[in-house]
């Protein structure tokens, strides 16, 4: 037992070192490109980006901007997860509903995000556009994955549940949810990244007040490359952090309810 704990600790340390080395490698590549280009307007050094981040973070507007962007994107993401799950359930119980919704979902998947952003700017107030776009990007992914999970639920296990009179609630809890969970987790992970990308793009085009996208737009206008890099780092950090928190939450919930990830 002791040996296995020591071994797993060693493995964890080895993995962490490997990841850190990879990060250092890419930071070095970035720095080398910076040395090669030597034009601050095209590329800024990692150190410079860190300095800019430190400078920005001293202003309360920075935190408000990050918070508002996160709120809008999360709002769209959560609505998308909810709508996608409900749609998946409805389309799996009714072929008619599947035939109705499937083309819509396919169109949303195939349409360029920019087209939707421009249309949304015409349809709704610009402040709601990032949330709407995130919602629009997440819904098809969640729908497709959860629908797939429902369809791929083992028919033998469903028959077993029926033979042993599990009832609807127990069948959902014991058979459907554990089958769907890996698909749902994958959809949420992909959806979270996409919600950030599309949401920020919407903020850039909408140039909404107190938004990361708005700041990125301003960086472009005033040719502040360091600011552009710094805000991009903020987006990446927040997306990764939220994805990590979400996976942790799902794992904990899964363990509590005997649901596999």
């Amino acid at each position: 037992m002791k040996t296995s704990i020591t071994q797993s600790k060693g493995l964890f340390r080895y993995k962490t070192i490997r990841k850190l080395l990879a990060a250092v490698f890419w930071l070095c590549v970035w720095q080398l490109i910076y040395f090669a280009v030597k034009q601050e307007i095209l590329i800024v050094s990692p150190v410079h980006v860190l300095q800019k981040l430190a400078e920005l973070s001293q202003d309360s507007v920075f935190w408000l901007t990050a918070l508002f962007s996160m709120t809008h994107i999360l709002e769209g993401f959560l609505l998308g997860v909810f709508a996608g799950s409900v749609l998946a359930f409805l389309t799996s119980v009714s072929r008619m509903l599947y035939d109705i919704f499937h083309p819509v979902i396919s169109i949303i998947k195939a349409t360029p995000v920019a087209s939707f952003i421009i249309l949304a700017l015409v349809w709704i107030p610009s402040v709601h556009v990032p949330a709407f776009i995130s919602f629009l990007m997440v819904t098809p992914i969640v729908w497709a994955n959860v629908f797939n999970g429902i369809e791929k639920t083992d028919k033998n296990l469903l028959q077993m549940a029926s033979a042993y009179r599990f009832g609807a609630v127990k069948t959902v809890q014991r058979v459907y949810l554990p089958s769907i969970m890996p698909y749902f987790t994958a959809a949420c992970t992909t959806g979270m990244g996409l919600a950030w990308k599309a949401g920020i793009a919407a903020e850039v085009l909408a140039n909404t007040h107190l938004s990361i996208g708005g700041q990125i737009y301003n960086s472009k206008i005033y040719i502040e490359t360091d600011s552009l890099f710094a805000w991009t780092v903020v987006v990446i950090a927040m997306s990764v952090l939220l994805e990590w928190l979400m996976v942790r939450f799902m794992k904990t919930a899964g363990q509590k309810y005997n649901v596999e990830q």
Binding site: Q159, M160, R174, V259, E260
Partner: peptide, 9 residues
């Protein structure tokens, strides 16, 4: 059943 049909999770 002919198969065990145990819930794997």
């Amino acid at each position: 059943f002919q198969e065990d049909r145990l819930l794997p999770w």
